[in-house]
Design a binder for these strands. Structure first.
Length: 252
DNA sequence: ATCGGTACCTGCACGC
DNA sequence: TGCGTGCAGGTACCGA
C-alpha cells in the first residue's frame, strides 16, 4: 500500500525521464517537489492524488500500462523516480499513456469527473444514466458520468447485471439499473480484494500480481463457455474497445 | 453540450 | 528466424 508507506515522509529528490508523461518542465517540477512532505495519499477515480505541504498536489494516472514500484531497479520504462529517506518510488510506463502533474490544487480534469463508482448511491447512479443518450458501455466508461470504471470491470459488471453492452442507457428500467449498480460494487470490491487484474505483467508496488483475472467471467474469455449458460463468450467492438459478453445472458 | 472517431506510444502474440 | 498485422487495464482532442 502506498499511503502508509509515503505518508509523513519527505521527498528527497525527483528525476523525470519521460517526454510526454510529465505535464510541465522536469527541472521545475522536481525542484518544487524536493523537500516537501507527503500529507496524504488518496484515490480519485483512476487518479492517485498525493497531497504535499503548502497545498501542493501531485496527481498520477497510470494510463494503460503504468506501474508504481517500490525499491525496484530502474529500467528502460522508468519515467520518474521519487527518492525518499527509506526507499524510492518508481513510475514505470512502457506506453507513456500515464500522466504526472503537479499543481496548487486538484486539476480541473480531475475535479470535473463524476462521483466515484464505489461510493455513488443507487439513486444518483440511476439518475445519471437516465440523463444519457448513448449506449451503456461507453456511458459507463465516461469518467465524467462516473469515475473509476475501465474496460475490464465494465464488461464484468454488465455480464453480472445481464445487460447487453449496446443497451441504451436511458432506456434501462429501474430494476436493471439497481442490478447494474450492485454488480459494479461487487466487481470492484472483488477486484480490490484480489489485488486487481494482472493481464500481462502488471504488479503492485511490491511487485505482486493481482489475481482478479482468474475471476473474470467474460473479459479475455472469447469462445469459452459462459459460466452461467455455457454459450460461447463473444467479443465485439463497442466504442472502439474490445467488448466481451454472453450473447444469451445479455440480450438487447 | 455531447457524440464518435482518431491520435498518442510500445510490446507482445500470432500467422505466414 | 523474421516480418507484418492486430491488439492492449486510457484519455484528449477533433469536427460534426
Amino acid at each position: 500500500m502506498l499511503a502508509p508507506r509515503l505518508t509523513g515522509r519527505r521527498i528527497i529528490a525527483v528525476q523525470f525521464f519521460a517526454r510526454r508523461v510529465l505535464r510541465g518542465r522536469p527541472r521545475q517540477v522536481a525542484a518544487r517537489l524536493e523537500g516537501t512532505t507527503v500529507q496524504a495519499v488518496r484515490r480519485h477515480g483512476k487518479f492517485i492524488v498525493i497531497e504535499l505541504d503548502g497545498g501542493l498536489v501531485l496527481t498520477l494516472h497510470l494510463g494503460m500500462t503504468g506501474t508504481l514500484l517500490w525499491d525496484a531497479a530502474p529500467g528502460p520504462h522508468t519515467r520518474a523516480v521519487f527518492r525518499f529517506p527509506h526507499g524510492r518510488l518508481l513510475f514505470d510506463d512502457p506506453r507513456q499513456f500515464g500522466r504526472i502533474e503537479l499543481g496548487d490544487s486538484l486539476p480541473e480534469r480531475v475535479t470535473r469527473l463524476g462521483p466515484d463508482a464505489l461510493s455513488i448511491s443507487p439513486e444518483d447512479f440511476a439518475g445519471r444514466l437516465r440523463q444519457r443518450r448513448g449506449i451503456i458501455k461507453p456511458v459507463l466508461l465516461n469518467q465524467t458520468v462516473l469515475r473509476g470504471l475501465g474496460n475490464i470491470y465494465t464488461d464484468e459488471a454488465l455480464f453480472r447485471a445481464r445487460i447487453h453492452p449496446r443497451a441504451i442507457a436511458a432506456r434501462l428500467r429501474a430494476e436493471r439499473l439497481r442490478r447494474l449498480h450492485g454488480a459494479i460494487q461487487e466487481v470492484l470490491h472483488a477486484a480490490v480484494r484480489a489485488g486487481g487484474s494482472s493481464i500481462s505483467d502488471y504488479v503492485d508496488a511490491e511487485g505482486r500480481q493481482g489475481l482478479f483475472q482468474f475471476e473474470h467471467r467474460v473479459y479475455g474469455r472469447t469462445g469459452e463457455p459462459c459460466s452461467v449458460c455455457a454459450t460461447p463468450i463473444r467479443r465485439i467492438v463497442v466504442a472502439q474497445r474490445g467488448t466481451h459478453y454472453c450473447p444469451r445472458c445479455q440480450r438487447l
